[in-house]
């Protein structure tokens, strides 16, 4: 199924020599060029400060490139008018590194707000929110405030919110950043499942065990540049045996429990 979409022609996401500078001083991206086809699952890897988050923020119009060009489904994001930004964003689910949950809204309201903001009715919210919460396994926390949740639960709520409008593109920044291996695997499975349904997924992470375990396309960032791109599935699986991986995870979990 993924192969069919791969052959569909023009890239879905195109970065062409994108440069991003913060405050006119800090160069966060120094000419990033990358094509992502519809339906792909791509890991953006690299050390802290290498520009992964900035790449995702540029794609979700949170920062503007000082140079270069970003195309989403053939549309030049640099030419998007301010009043069209919300339209573009409704076509992508964003899972920010800090979850970005509204602290004064309950879990279900966080999802409901995203839906209502995108023009869905109250009836749709009532129907869909429990379904999504069930899918990300936080339905039992529906009435809690984000501050009352663990990091893993907040992460899952953030993912739930990102997929509430069924976006064709999902951007996740360090989704396993502060999760134990078990929960990391669970979150990753969720993202893979979405990808199987046709969602294009970009994940920024430096969680290399997960990357090796999942074995998808890996793009390596270093100091604002893309220095490597596996481009083909399983190219970076370096003897990562699934069983061994699971054992490690279990061992770590037991260690944490003790």
């Amino acid at each position: 199924m993924g192969d069919q979409l791969d052959r569909a022609g023009t890239p879905y996401v195109q970065f062409q020599g994108v440069e991003v500078t913060y405050n006119g001083i800090v160069s966060a991206l120094r000419g990033a060029t990358l094509d992502v086809r519809r339906g792909e699952f791509v890991f953006l890897c690299g050390p802290t400060g290498s520009g992964k988050s900035t790449f995702l923020k540029a794609l979700s119009l949170q920062v503007r490139p000082s140079n270069g060009c970003i195309l989403l489904d053939g549309v030049d994001l640099g030419a998007v008018e301010p009043n069209e930004v919300s339209e573009i964003r409704r076509r992508m689910g964003v899972v920010p590194q800090d979850f970005g949950l509204l602290p004064k809204k309950r879990v279900w309201e966080n999802l409901g707000y995203a839906m209502r903001a995108c023009g869905r009715t109250r009836r749709e919210v009532r129907q869909l929110v429990p379904e999504i919460l069930e899918r990300v396994h936080v339905l039992h926390k529906a009435d809690a405030f984000p501050g009352e949740l663990s990091g893993g639960e907040q992460q899952r709520v953030a993912i739930g919110r990102a997929i509430i409008n069924n976006p064709p593109l999902l951007l996740a920044d360090e989704p396993t950043g502060n999760l134990d291996p078990d929960h990391s695997a669970e979150v990753m499975n969720l993202l893979l499942e979405l990808n199987l349904r046709g969602t294009t997924v970009l994940v920024a992470t430096h969680d290399m065990p997960i990357v090796e375990h999942v074995a998808r396309r890996v793009v390596l960032f270093e100091q604002g540049r893309i220095v490597a791109d596996s481009h083909s599935p399983r190219a970076t699986v370096q003897g990562a045996d699934e069983g061994a991986q699971a054992e490690t995870a279990e061992a770590q979990l037991e260690g944490a429990d003790a």
Partner: peptide
């Protein structure tokens, strides 16, 4: 500020916010 940023990030229109 953060809240507004989040709302806009999930696709809310300005008037909506």
């Amino acid at each position: 500020r953060r809240e507004i940023g989040i709302m806009l990030l999930v696709g809310a229109r300005r008037t909506m916010v």
